[in-house]
Write a protein that binds this DNA or RNA. Sequence first.
DNA 1: ATGAGGAAAACTGTAGTACAGTTCAACTGT
DNA 2: ACAGTTGAACTGTACTACAGTTTTCCTCAT
Lengths: 217, 217
Amino acid sequence: MSALDGLEVRRTTTAQQLADGLSERIMAGAFGPGDRLRESAIAAELGVARNTIREAVRILELTGLVRYEVNRGAVVIAPTPEKIEALYTARERLETAAVIRAPRPEQLEAITRAFDEIAEAAAEGDTGRIVDRDLAFHQAIVALLDSTRLDEFFTAMTKELRFYLTVLSKSETPEEVVAQHRVILDAIRLGDHDRAVAEIRAHIDVSVEQLKQLLRR
Amino acid sequence: MSALDGLEVRRTTTAQQLADGLSERIMAGAFGPGDRLRESAIAAELGVARNTIREAVRILELTGLVRYEVNRGAVVIAPTPEKIEALYTARERLETAAVIRAPRPEQLEAITRAFDEIAEAAAEGDTGRIVDRDLAFHQAIVALLDSTRLDEFFTAMTKELRFYLTVLSKSETPEEVVAQHRVILDAIRLGDHDRAVAEIRAHIDVSVEQLKQLLRR
DNA sequence: ATGAGGAAAACTGTAGTACAGTTCAACTGT
DNA sequence: ACAGTTGAACTGTACTACAGTTTTCCTCAT
């Protein structure tokens, strides 16, 4: 334990900090889907130069939360049925590929722990936290693939997912969420790959349908 | 066939064009792995402003060919054994997940065609083209997953892969490449999933080993 | 020669100004 | 109600400037 422990210099750029901050705001719903991020306004409000904002937004683009349109600048991604479908299809492929692998003990433990945290958040009824833990549970499943690249890819998708789930209000009861995840967990623990795959498919189908439903208004 | 077919206005920005151009140069080996992209030099040489280059490089970052380091700017990614391993592991997971699905006729045809093109390029002995078609073959396999998001993800990885394969010179004969892909194709056509998985694993193991070997110098 | 130290040069990160070309919204006359 | 016009608001890009970091290069003691 050094006397300098915890001391750390700024090791990050303004643009990076702005990107992080904006990312947070967007996910919190400060900008609605389809909204444009106006550079001068943001720059003026935060007291930074416009090119710095521009760079921050380019960094944001990495996470997939905004995309650039020529002469219109950065636009917050807007969910469409096709996009949601594409996102969930990718999830389905990854997660089903993951659960047919034999989990190592610590992986199994991580998934179990993730489930417990969902249950805990559900008991408290904190919807925001339920979403977070829900995503963490699925992240733990993808981790079964033992591929850092795929983990990263899933993390990126997670940002979009959380965004959708946050912007569109939720329509499931916490109990339903817990129940759905419990059957997945059970199947994994039992080593019943076929059932795990089936449960994941069912879970994802339900989610897609709910999201589409919410979107239709 | 409209009379206006093919007509298209510029619909792209300078930064985007620069990003494309730089990407090409990097993959062609104009910049070695680990090299820094010096903004002022590039800006001066191409007659554009430095902030435009900066933006172009941020776009480049999207494809994973460069990454930013604080106060050092953009650096061309350098292959390390760990990175190569991570890349190929992700490939392996995707491709094996793909071949256990039953291919639709047009997907099978696409893969077959991709193989034929490998054979064709091999006959000509054009190593650059062999690499391209090799990657296209694997892209066709990943397409079996029917997920545009995963296709895109694989495409991004492909850029890195091609880069490695281009920078590091090749050490396989064209015949070996063709033979390796033929067994994969055969297994897929026969619907023998287990063998297809095994062949893909073998193929990827060989590639990783060769790359690491080349890297050790 | 060689390695340590330190000064200078080269660059990045950021700010700020400017302006042409585009998009968008409000206004106008029909 | 509506097509057309106009002007304001913005984006894309260029240029200049400068503080803070790296990198390079030179010097000096060993």
